[in-house]
């Protein structure tokens, strides 16, 4: 291994990210080369300094925004369900009102009154005058329209 290759692999060597064979070769080179050995020491110092950095003291609530979002979302969800319920109720009321306005005499109450209705209102029930007319017309044959293709029996 030459110096250029070793210097490129030094960081990986320090992080133990190389194979055993590569590590052995680099170690051998470092024993022999003063320049690469110095670079290795400096990189080790950098790595150790970074590892030894103290974390900053924790201050403040990191979940502040999450709490705000969560509360806002919960309120929004409650409001949304209330809105949906109100809309459904409004639609049902509108439907009922429209049906009452469009069909004021629906069949329901009429059927209930069928038994005690007046005789003149029945389509099948006939007045005496109508019965007389029917008796006069009794001998006559009913009018049959002549339609093409339909034979008329006499």
């Amino acid at each position: 291994m030459n110096c250029h290759r070793v210097q490129n692999l030094l960081s990986s060597y320090l992080d133990q990210e190389l194979s055993a064979g590569e590590r052995r070769e680099i170690r051998r080179h470092l024993f022999a080369c003063a320049g690469c050995s110095r670079l290795c020491d400096e990189l080790t110092l950098i790595k150790d300094s970074l590892e030894g950095l103290e974390p900053p003291a924790i201050g403040g609530d990191f979940l502040k925004k999450v709490h705000l979002y969560r509360d806002g979302r919960l309120l929004q969800e409650t409001f949304l369900w209330g809105k949906r319920l109100a809309m459904t109720a409004a639609w049902i009321l509108l439907f009922l009102l429209t049906s009452f306005l469009l069909f004021p005499n629906s069949s329901g109450p009429e059927l209930a009154k069928k038994e005690d209705r007046l005789p003149g209102y029945d389509v099948h029930e006939r007045t005496p005058q109508q019965q007389e007319t029917q008796a006069e017309e009794g001998g006559k044959k009913p009018f049959l329209p002549l339609l093409p293709g339909i034979p008329v029996s006499r």
């Binding site: 974390p55 900053p56 924790i58 201050g59 990191f62 925004k65």
Partner: peptide
């Protein structure tokens, strides 16, 4: 703690790190 440390080293400022972490937690949530 490690996340705050990461944010602080990345931004180099305590206030920016706090903002970044708060935003990060919100996005994660």
């Amino acid at each position: 703690k490690p996340l705050y440390h990461f944010a602080y080293r990345l931004t180099g400022d305590i206030n920016d790190a706090q903002d970044l972490l708060q935003e990060g937690f919100l996005k994660a949530y």
